[in-house]
C-alpha cells in the first residue's frame, strides 16, 4: 500500500497486526518533537489521521476503492507522548455509501494505555 507524502514526513511506516489490519508506526525523531522529550500534539494527531485514512483505504479497497475527505476530527490527548515509538490504528465504526465514521487510538508501550484518541468523520467518493 502506497503511503501519503505527509506520512513520510512523520516517518510513519505500515505494520500489520496478526489479523492483517494496518497499524502505523512512527519512530521518535527531531521532526515530531514538541517540548523537549515529548511528541508534539500535532504529530500525534497526524499519526492518528494517517492510521484512520489507511484503515479506510484498506476497507474501501475491498469495495472497489474510493477517495476520502475529512469533515471533522476530534482528538483527546490522554498522556504525553514520550521519546519512543508510537503506534496507531484506526477502526471503522460505520462505512456508509457517502460518510465513514472512524475511531483511532495511539499508544506507546501498552496498547491498553492510549496516549491519544480521535473520532473522525470522512466524506467518501467511491470509484
Amino acid at each position: 500500500m502506497k503511503l501519503l507524502p505527509y506520512a513520510a514526513l512523520l516517518g510513519a511506516v505500515l505494520e500489520r497486526a496478526a489479523d492483517g489490519t494496518p497499524i502505523m508506526m512512527m519512530p521518535f525523531h527531531d521532526g515530531v518533537i514538541g517540548r523537549p522529550g515529548f511528541l508534539q500534539g500535532g504529530a500525534i494527531s497526524g499519526l492518528l489521521e494517517v492510521a484512520a485514512i489507511t484503515a479506510l483505504h484498506h476497507a474501501l479497497a475491498e469495495e472497489g476503492g474510493g477517495r476520502v475527505k475529512p469533515i471533522n476530527v476530534t482528538i483527546d490527548f490522554m498522556r504525553g507522548g514520550r521519546d519512543r515509538e508510537t503506534r496507531a490504528a484506526g477502526t471503522i465504526t460505520r462505512l456508509g455509501t457517502r460518510v465513514a465514521n472512524v475511531e483511532a487510538f495511539a499508544w506507546q508501550d501498552d496498547r491498553s494505555k492510549p496516549i491519544a484518541a480521535a473520532r473522525m468523520n470522512y466524506l467518501i467518493e467511491r470509484d
Binding site: 505527509y6 500535532g42 504529530a43 494527531s45 497526524g46 494517517v50 475529512p70 476530527v73
Partner: peptide, 11 residues
C-alpha cells in the same frame, strides 16, 4: 495538504 499539519498549526 493533509489534515494533520493544519491541526498541528492550530494546536
Amino acid at each position: 495538504i493533509a489534515s494533520g499539519p493544519i491541526i498541528a498549526m492550530m494546536d
